[in-house]
Amino acid sequence: MSSQPPHGPLCTLDSLSSDLRALGAAPGETLLVHSSLSALGWVCGGAPTVVRALLDVLGPDGTLVVPTHSTENSDPAGWIAPPVPRAWWDEIRATMPAYDPRTTPTRGVGLIPETVRTWPGAVRSDHPQTSFTAIGPRARTLTAGHALDCMFGEESPLARLEEAGARVLLLGADYDSCSAFHLAEYRLASPPLDDNSFAVQTPQGRRWVTVRDVAVDEEDFERLGADFEGQGPVVHGTVGRARARLFPLADAVAYAERWLGEHRVPAGG
């Protein structure tokens, strides 16, 4: 174990709840949270304390939503972090465990979403790679109907969050994590398409399936987010030591539609 003192500040349930309220998070609202636990400081109780603080602020009528992606359930031919030998590809495709919303762990989204995934009463959507998990009275409505060929589009929780008037909280996370911008990619005139493969459980048993879906790309989301901040209704604050930004999801999607339409070359263009 490290002999170095922890990086502060000391964050408790009460201090995090107070910071979130000061930022403007409100009881009864629906909140999509992208987060970094390490950005907050030293949290007494770790990720469960952050989840409790979010639920405390939202109250019994509010709904917490987080990305619970499991991107390792994918074609190994596209793996780069790290790659695997080509000789393994066929066996990986044949043996990759089928997605199970109850047990498949998250990957690459942090400890807070993984904690939400296993929280009592949590409801997770059915996409094997880009699921979202929700806690609260709107959880089932927001996560229902997540189509296999629609990671982030109209048949995903992002569209349901837009309809519900949700807000996005970037809690120590940057705009390259802002999944709401992906919904705008689906609404471009000619979005690029690609094959997407994964293991799913069907009534006939486990299957490796390939679907055609929009090829999403967050490479320019930081520039998009910076421009959105200059013109959009973004509330800034600090939670623990983390930079926090709070804004309406629908406004972010509408701005991203215009911005991407101007800055990206259409597929085949």
Rank of each mutant, 00 (worst) to 15 (best):
E185H: 10
V51I: 10
A94K: 07
E155T: 11
P5D: 10
V211E: 12
C150A: 14
G121S: 10
T115G: 03
G8F: 08
F228E: 09
D251P: 08
S17G: 15
L148W: 15
C44D: 15
P192L: 01
A256N: 13
S35P: 08
H34R: 01
V239F: 05
A53D: 09
A254G: 13
E229S: 08
E29T: 03
T71Y: 04
R86V: 15
F152G: 01
A164W: 06
V66H: 02
R52T: 04
Y175R: 00
G230E: 15
S38W: 07
P85W: 00
F221T: 03
L158H: 06
R117Q: 05
C150R: 08
L16Q: 00
R207P: 10
D90I: 07
R245A: 14
D220L: 12
G237P: 11
A26T: 12
V51T: 00
G8R: 04
A94R: 07
E155D: 15
V234R: 09
P128D: 07
L224W: 10
A22M: 12
R93F: 14
P137S: 05
V234N: 01
E218R: 13
Q4P: 07
E91W: 13
W79G: 13
L23G: 06
L188F: 03
I112Y: 05
I92V: 15
R243Y: 10
A98V: 07
A252V: 09
G225H: 11
Q201W: 05
P85G: 09
G41T: 08
G46M: 00
M96I: 01
R264Q: 14
R140H: 05
E222G: 11
L171P: 12
G110S: 01
A226H: 14
A144L: 00
T12G: 03
G59E: 12
P105F: 03
G24N: 06
D126M: 03
D149C: 12
T130R: 08
L193Y: 07
F221D: 01
L171K: 08
G269L: 12
E229K: 13
R241W: 06
S190R: 15
R167L: 05
G59N: 01
A159P: 01
V168I: 15
A81V: 06
D100V: 04
P101W: 00
